[in-house]
Design a protein around this nucleic acid. Structure first.
Lengths: 356, 356
DNA sequence: TTGTACGCGTTATCAA
DNA sequence: TTGATAACGCGTACAA
């Protein structure tokens, strides 16, 4: 690492001595309250007055002191977004959507990473950042149904994901069971009969894994097919590497299989990787489908069929829910709201073949 | 989309009526100043007093009002991070690192997305968010050497990337020329002689493309090899799709080639995709190397050799630079600082082969 | 070692 | 339609 100081220019230090509403008021020959009124779009102002104030604001380059406003209003227009980590494409893309949705509503997002560590997820809920945030959008991966009290907070909270369903907080999710059913049905429709699922969490009864495996089972049952244990493959972490490993194990064991349902895209991409290594034709011999529709799925080789969970809709809804509670202020919070977002099957080459 | 209200429980509304320092002071039988002293770790406090205050804080569940503190101190402990978009893995991972580095120093990050739109990049520099942010870490993709005045701001600003080098602001970058030289040299060391580069921006003289192509040229020159125009392939956007297209065009034209240097990982992964489609053996017939070391490169098929730019170091340095200026307050800002971070070549299967 | 009192820049409540 | 003035909650001279 090399450090150097460029000669000549000075770099920006602190902002110039602040010009306040008082200065603007003096310049415009009005009271400070009138300046405030102009700034806040108060309607009953004589046009001439408004013009003088606006001119003064422009002349002086006045910019409101946000901290003072926040102190006075008891609100910051900041919302927290807590996700496991941005390095995971699904959450990076979710954050992208949330930031856009928030921006459209004039609020700013503070991103916090929990690293999927239980202790940090708890900290996110009661940590110091809640002090300067109007509300929180939180996608937990460790906290579950046993932690309901932890979600009983006194600020607007919107939960994302499939870990908890009965917390005293708003919740935005999608129908994971139906979506997994659709993914499996898609494979069945293509004539596949030995469909493996990769990413199961055997012991668990909550979370995305359990729900998606259930959808897989339901689809097979509806088609009159048995759920073969050797086709339900475990993968604790939903990463490409574990998806590749699970797929390799499946093939090594000589299990007969003609399709793989990765419980998320990372797993399915890992499966694609393993199949590629072994020169297995996809979808000729084995079709593959994932879940999440991260951008990468449109560029893998072959492109990956998947379930699109409606990220933008989820993000918009989550932002709207927090802001609704923020706007409600102290008034009767009312019961938690549950929103189930739409999903769509996106069929690509990994199931349809090169022509797709 | 389905919306429902859960029966029973109330969801969290607004925080309970705030308990202030006054309340704590009263409860502890001390003055508000003493409470403040305890909170700020002022050393000269009688242990007994401190204990009483801390007990009162615990009893009352006191939490400091951050807006009031910010107003008083003229600082928010918030820094902005402006990137093109989080959907691009490189920037998602950079944001991840910056957020971690900031957290370690007790500051919080506000992520802003410019979408690589010139107008939005300008807005980031002088928009309203600068009002409640102590400083900004900015990775521009559109603004360039012609916009130096835009970077002359009166708040702590740290620039990232290769768009501008002479702005009156701190700058953290890496030696793109040397890194590209190393990538090319790696291919030369493996005996490759017809090395294509994908992602060139023919007209440009600034930015990552120009610098990396220069490194490529230098390495070839040092090896006594000519730079063949037909091996320097353009790709405006550095996406997987453009990398795949450029690679396809290269092959379609029947150009003889035994290695491809993607100017970033997305391009290289796209090249891998195109080569896979055409059943070209990598690295048997064509070796591929990228640039950035995004996590995906460790999981592609085959795994991708690349240049690791030292993300964490860059993030830490950037955060330290802004905070140093924040701490300096109004005092003589001094000249802009330039930091050149280290890089490392990461050789994987796409150049070394399956055994790697 | 601790307390008093003022000011940070806004918004809100009145009254005019 | 506009103005005076009191909060908002905390930091900090200055005093004790």
């Amino acid at each position: 690492m090399t450090t150097a100081a460029a000669p000549g220019a000075r770099a920006g230090g602190r902002r110039a001595a602040a010009v306040t509403m008082h200065d603007v008021a003096a310049r415009a020959g009005v009271s400070i309250k009138t300046v405030s009124n102009v700034l806040n779009g108060y309607p009953y102002i004589r046009p001439a007055t408004r013009d003088r104030v606006e001119a003064a604001i422009a002349d002086l380059g006045y910019q409101m002191n946000v901290s003072a406003r926040n102190l006075r209003r008891g609100r910051t227009d900041l919302v927290g977004l807590a996700v496991p980590e941005l390095s995971l494409p699904y959450f990076a893309e979710l954050a992208d959507s949330v930031i856009r949705a928030a921006e459209a509503r004039g609020v700013t997002v503070v991103v916090e990473q929990t690293g999927s560590v239980r202790e940090r997820e708890l900290e996110v809920l009661r940590g110091p950042r809640r002090q300067f945030t109007d509300g929180l959008i939180f996608s937990p991966l460790e906290l579950g149904p046993g932690d309901l009290e932890a979600f009983a907070v006194d600020y607007p909270l919107v939960l994302l994901g499939e870990r908890v369903f009965d917390a005293p907080a708003d919740h935005v999710t999608m129908d994971n069971v139906a979506a997994a059913r659709a993914a499996t049905q898609h494979l069945l429709d293509l004539g596949r009969r030995r469909i493996a699922v990769v990413g199961a969490h055997p012991g668990e009864s909550v979370g995305s894994a359990a729900l998606r495996v259930q959808g897989y089972r339901e689809a097979l049952a509806a088609a009159g097919l048995p759920v073969r244990p050797e086709l339900v493959r475990e993968a604790g972490l939903w990463h490409r590497s574990t998806g590749a490993e699970a797929t390799s194990a499946l093939l090594d064991e000589g299990v007969e299989v003609d399709a793989i349902f990765g419980l998320n895209d990372a797993l399915a991409l890992g499966a694609l990787h393993a199949l590629h290594d072994r020169r297995v034709d996809v979808p000729g011999r084995i079709a593959v489908i994932g879940f999440d529709d991260v951008e990468e799925t449109a560029f893998s080789s072959p492109t990956l069929s998947t379930i699109a969970p409606g990220r933008d809709q989820i993000a918009r809804t989550a932002v709207d829910l927090v802001l609704a509670r923020v706007a409600a202020g102290g008034e009767d919070p009312g019961p938690p709201r549950r929103v189930v977002a739409d999903f769509a099957l996106v069929a690509r080459a990994s199931t349809l073949g090169a022509g797709a």
